[in-house]
């Protein structure tokens, strides 16, 4: 049983069933209409149901053949560190402006790997911040507040 649940294809199938099911159930409330006059729910319900079928197919095929390919390892460290660096950019850009957001983004992203050398990372942070201010804000004229509310 546990072997089955670690199988790559079984997991893929389950993910597909979950996504398809959510979309299909959600769309069912939107009004199906008829084939001639389709409501907003018609196409998504069909697609969601198809996705569920595909998911069932993938899982079933893998279970039936009993040839399991284990799911490759996922490394959480880069996922968490990079997500946090993006979130920090998102929170800071509206509140403190581009300079703070850029600095935070680079510094936090440094946690994503053990190879980071912090002195280097600080230099990159300053460099990228200067680059962003000059290129994005001044040259390309993107509407950023540089600093403050």
């Amino acid at each position: 049983m546990s072997v089955m649940l670690k199988d790559r294809d079984v997991i893929t199938g389950l993910v597909f069933i979950l996504i398809g099911g959510m979309f299909a159930l959600g769309a069912a409330d939107y009004g199906m209409g008829s084939a001639r006059r389709m409501g907003p729910g018609y196409f998504p319900v069909i697609l969601g149901s198809l996705l569920v079928l595909v998911g069932v197919g993938i899982s079933a095929k893998s279970l039936w053949r009993r040839k399991f390919t284990p799911m490759p390892a996922m490394y959480l460290r880069p996922v968490v560190a990079l997500s946090l660096s993006i979130l920090a950019f998102g929170v800071l850009i509206d509140r403190l402006g581009l300079i703070a957001a850029c600095m935070a983004c680079v510094l936090i992203s440094g946690f994503a790997t053990q190879e980071t050398r912090w002195k280097e990372n600080f230099l990159i942070a300053f460099g990228m911040t200067a680059f962003s201010v000059i290129v994005f804000s001044l040259l390309l004229g993107l509407p950023f507040r540089l600093w403050g509310q």
Binding site: L82, S85, A101, C102, C105, V106, M128
Partner: peptide, 10 residues
Amino acid sequence: YPAIMVFLCV
């Protein structure tokens, strides 16, 4: 990669 991250965010 930190530079790529800034590009992505901006």
